[in-house]
Protein backbone atom coordinates (compact mmCIF):
# COMPACT_ATOMS: atom_id res chain seq x y z
CA UNK A 1 0.00 0.00 0.00
CA UNK A 2 1.70 3.12 -1.14
CA UNK A 3 1.27 5.89 1.35
CA UNK A 4 -2.08 7.46 0.68
CA UNK A 5 -1.44 10.29 3.06
CA UNK A 6 -1.84 13.54 1.26
CA UNK A 7 1.26 15.45 0.35
CA UNK A 8 1.41 18.75 2.23
CA UNK A 9 1.32 21.02 -0.76
CA UNK A 10 -0.40 24.20 -1.75
CA UNK A 11 -1.19 22.85 -5.20
CA UNK A 12 -4.75 21.72 -4.74
CA UNK A 13 -6.81 22.80 -7.70
CA UNK A 14 -6.21 21.04 -11.01
CA UNK A 15 -8.66 23.10 -12.97
CA UNK A 16 -11.54 25.57 -13.03
CA UNK A 17 -14.17 25.48 -15.72
CA UNK A 18 -17.32 27.28 -16.75
CA UNK A 19 -19.44 25.79 -19.52
CA UNK A 20 -22.76 26.68 -21.09
CA UNK A 21 -25.68 24.30 -21.41
CA UNK A 22 -24.48 22.95 -24.75
CA UNK A 23 -21.21 21.88 -23.24
CA UNK A 24 -19.23 24.71 -24.81
CA UNK A 25 -16.32 26.07 -22.87
CA UNK A 26 -16.79 29.62 -21.72
CA UNK A 27 -13.82 29.87 -19.46
CA UNK A 28 -11.32 27.17 -18.56
CA UNK A 29 -8.15 27.09 -16.55
CA UNK A 30 -6.06 23.95 -16.25
CA UNK A 31 -3.12 23.93 -13.90
CA UNK A 32 -1.65 20.48 -14.29
CA UNK A 33 0.11 20.02 -17.59
CA UNK A 34 0.71 16.36 -16.91
CA UNK A 35 -2.97 15.58 -16.92
CA UNK A 36 -3.98 17.95 -19.68
CA UNK A 37 -0.97 18.51 -21.92
CA UNK A 38 -2.91 20.17 -24.72
CA UNK A 39 -6.18 21.65 -25.76
CA UNK A 40 -7.22 18.39 -27.36
CA UNK A 41 -7.19 16.45 -24.09
CA UNK A 42 -8.92 19.31 -22.34
CA UNK A 43 -11.74 19.39 -24.84
CA UNK A 44 -12.15 15.64 -24.71
CA UNK A 45 -12.30 15.78 -20.92
CA UNK A 46 -14.84 18.60 -21.02
CA UNK A 47 -17.06 16.72 -23.40
CA UNK A 48 -16.96 13.64 -21.23
CA UNK A 49 -17.52 15.68 -18.09
CA UNK A 50 -20.47 17.47 -19.57
CA UNK A 51 -22.26 14.36 -20.76
CA UNK A 52 -21.81 12.85 -17.32
CA UNK A 53 -22.99 15.85 -15.37
CA UNK A 54 -25.49 17.91 -17.32
CA UNK A 55 -28.47 15.84 -16.35
CA UNK A 56 -27.78 14.62 -12.87
CA UNK A 57 -27.33 17.52 -10.52
CA UNK A 58 -25.46 15.73 -7.82
CA UNK A 59 -22.55 17.99 -7.01
CA UNK A 60 -19.63 15.61 -7.24
CA UNK A 61 -18.29 13.08 -9.71
CA UNK A 62 -15.11 11.14 -10.18
CA UNK A 63 -13.81 11.18 -13.73
CA UNK A 64 -10.53 10.28 -15.38
CA UNK A 65 -8.81 10.12 -12.03
CA UNK A 66 -10.02 13.53 -10.97
CA UNK A 67 -12.61 14.56 -8.47
CA UNK A 68 -14.85 17.17 -10.02
CA UNK A 69 -17.30 19.18 -7.96
CA UNK A 70 -19.88 21.15 -9.85
CA UNK A 71 -22.89 23.38 -9.65
CA UNK A 72 -25.21 24.62 -12.33
CA UNK A 73 -27.59 27.50 -12.72
CA UNK A 74 -29.97 28.29 -15.59
CA UNK A 75 -27.65 27.73 -18.54
CA UNK A 76 -24.24 27.70 -16.87
CA UNK A 77 -22.16 24.94 -15.33
CA UNK A 78 -19.35 25.66 -12.89
CA UNK A 79 -16.71 23.02 -12.22
CA UNK A 80 -13.68 22.70 -9.97
CA UNK A 81 -11.32 19.79 -10.48
CA UNK A 82 -8.84 18.28 -8.03
CA UNK A 83 -6.83 15.11 -7.53
CA UNK A 84 -8.98 12.08 -6.76
CA UNK A 85 -7.40 11.62 -3.35
CA UNK A 86 -7.80 15.16 -2.30
CA UNK A 87 -10.18 16.64 0.20
CA UNK A 88 -13.44 17.19 -1.66
CA UNK A 89 -14.51 19.78 0.86
CA UNK A 90 -11.64 22.07 -0.03
CA UNK A 91 -12.69 21.83 -3.66
CA UNK A 92 -16.25 22.57 -2.65
CA UNK A 93 -15.10 25.71 -0.87
CA UNK A 94 -13.38 26.84 -4.04
CA UNK A 95 -16.44 26.05 -6.10
CA UNK A 96 -18.67 28.05 -3.79
CA UNK A 97 -16.27 30.92 -3.99
CA UNK A 98 -16.25 30.75 -7.78
CA UNK A 99 -20.00 30.60 -7.96
CA UNK A 100 -20.77 33.21 -5.34
CA UNK A 101 -18.31 35.73 -6.65
CA UNK A 102 -19.62 35.25 -10.19
CA UNK A 103 -23.09 35.68 -8.86
CA UNK A 104 -22.14 38.91 -7.13
CA UNK A 105 -20.44 40.19 -10.23
CA UNK A 106 -23.44 39.36 -12.36
CA UNK A 107 -25.81 40.78 -9.73
CA UNK A 108 -27.49 37.45 -9.17
CA UNK A 109 -28.25 37.04 -12.88
CA UNK A 110 -26.17 33.94 -13.24
CA UNK A 111 -26.86 33.13 -16.85
CA UNK A 112 -24.85 32.95 -19.99
CA UNK A 113 -25.85 36.22 -21.60
CA UNK A 114 -25.03 38.32 -18.57
CA UNK A 115 -21.85 36.40 -18.00
CA UNK A 116 -20.71 37.07 -21.53
CA UNK A 117 -21.31 40.77 -21.03
CA UNK A 118 -19.15 40.76 -17.94
CA UNK A 119 -16.62 38.22 -19.07
CA UNK A 120 -13.70 40.56 -18.39
CA UNK A 121 -14.53 40.89 -14.72
CA UNK A 122 -15.24 37.19 -14.36
CA UNK A 123 -11.84 36.46 -15.89
CA UNK A 124 -10.27 38.72 -13.29
CA UNK A 125 -12.21 36.99 -10.56
CA UNK A 126 -11.08 33.54 -11.67
CA UNK A 127 -7.53 34.84 -11.71
CA UNK A 128 -7.94 36.06 -8.14
CA UNK A 129 -9.42 32.82 -6.88
CA UNK A 130 -6.70 30.52 -8.03
CA UNK A 131 -3.14 31.18 -9.14
CA UNK A 132 -1.43 28.29 -10.87
CA UNK A 133 -3.29 25.68 -8.84
CA UNK A 134 -2.93 27.43 -5.49
CA UNK A 135 -6.03 28.76 -3.83
CA UNK A 136 -5.39 32.47 -3.57
CA UNK A 137 -8.59 33.53 -1.90
CA UNK A 138 -11.78 31.70 -1.02
CA UNK A 139 -13.96 34.52 0.22
CA UNK A 140 -16.32 35.81 -2.50
CA UNK A 141 -16.57 39.23 -0.90
CA UNK A 142 -12.82 39.68 -0.92
CA UNK A 143 -12.72 38.58 -4.55
CA UNK A 144 -15.32 41.10 -5.61
CA UNK A 145 -13.52 43.80 -3.75
CA UNK A 146 -10.27 42.90 -5.48
CA UNK A 147 -11.60 42.83 -8.99
CA UNK A 148 -12.80 46.36 -8.38
CA UNK A 149 -16.29 45.44 -9.30
CA UNK A 150 -17.56 48.03 -11.71
CA UNK A 151 -20.29 49.34 -9.46
CA UNK A 152 -22.90 51.41 -11.13
CA UNK A 153 -20.03 53.64 -11.82
CA UNK A 154 -21.05 54.56 -15.33
CA UNK A 155 -23.17 57.66 -15.20
CA UNK A 156 -26.44 57.11 -16.95
CA UNK A 157 -25.50 59.63 -19.60
CA UNK A 158 -22.64 57.50 -20.84
CA UNK A 159 -24.68 54.35 -21.19
CA UNK A 160 -26.15 53.57 -24.53
CA UNK A 161 -29.89 53.52 -24.92
CA UNK A 162 -29.83 49.77 -25.30
CA UNK A 163 -27.96 49.36 -22.04
CA UNK A 164 -30.44 51.53 -20.17
CA UNK A 165 -33.31 49.56 -21.63
CA UNK A 166 -31.61 46.34 -20.71
CA UNK A 167 -31.19 47.43 -17.11
CA UNK A 168 -34.77 48.55 -16.92
CA UNK A 169 -35.98 45.29 -18.39
CA UNK A 170 -33.98 43.30 -15.94
CA UNK A 171 -35.23 45.20 -12.98
CA UNK A 172 -38.75 44.68 -14.18
CA UNK A 173 -38.12 41.00 -14.62
CA UNK A 174 -36.79 40.65 -11.10
CA UNK A 175 -39.70 42.52 -9.60
CA UNK A 176 -42.08 40.28 -11.53
CA UNK A 177 -40.30 37.15 -10.47
CA UNK A 178 -40.55 38.12 -6.84
Amino acid sequence: MDSSLLEPTLYIVKGLLIMDNDGNRILAKYFDHNIFPSNKEQKAFEKNLFTKTHRANSEVIMLDGLTCVYKSNVDLFFYVMGSCNDNELILMTVLHCLYDSTSQILRKNVEKRVLMENLDVVMLAVDEICDGGIILEADPNAICQRVALRADDIPIGEQTVAQVLQTAKEQLKWSLLK
Partner: peptide
Protein backbone atom coordinates in the same frame (compact mmCIF):
# COMPACT_ATOMS: atom_id res chain seq x y z
CA UNK B 1 -27.40 16.41 3.16
CA UNK B 2 -24.38 17.56 1.18
CA UNK B 3 -23.42 15.15 -1.59
CA UNK B 4 -19.76 16.16 -1.49
CA UNK B 5 -19.55 15.29 2.18
CA UNK B 6 -21.24 11.94 1.67
CA UNK B 7 -18.97 11.26 -1.24
CA UNK B 8 -15.85 12.09 0.73
CA UNK B 9 -16.96 9.91 3.62
CA UNK B 10 -17.84 6.88 1.52
CA UNK B 11 -14.68 7.17 -0.52
CA UNK B 12 -12.60 7.09 2.64
CA UNK B 13 -14.61 4.29 4.21
CA UNK B 14 -14.15 2.30 1.05
CA UNK B 15 -10.41 2.51 1.61
CA UNK B 16 -10.64 1.57 5.26
CA UNK B 17 -12.71 -1.44 4.32
CA UNK B 18 -9.61 -3.02 2.88
CA UNK B 19 -7.33 -2.55 5.86
Amino acid sequence: PKPALRFAAVRTLNKVAIS
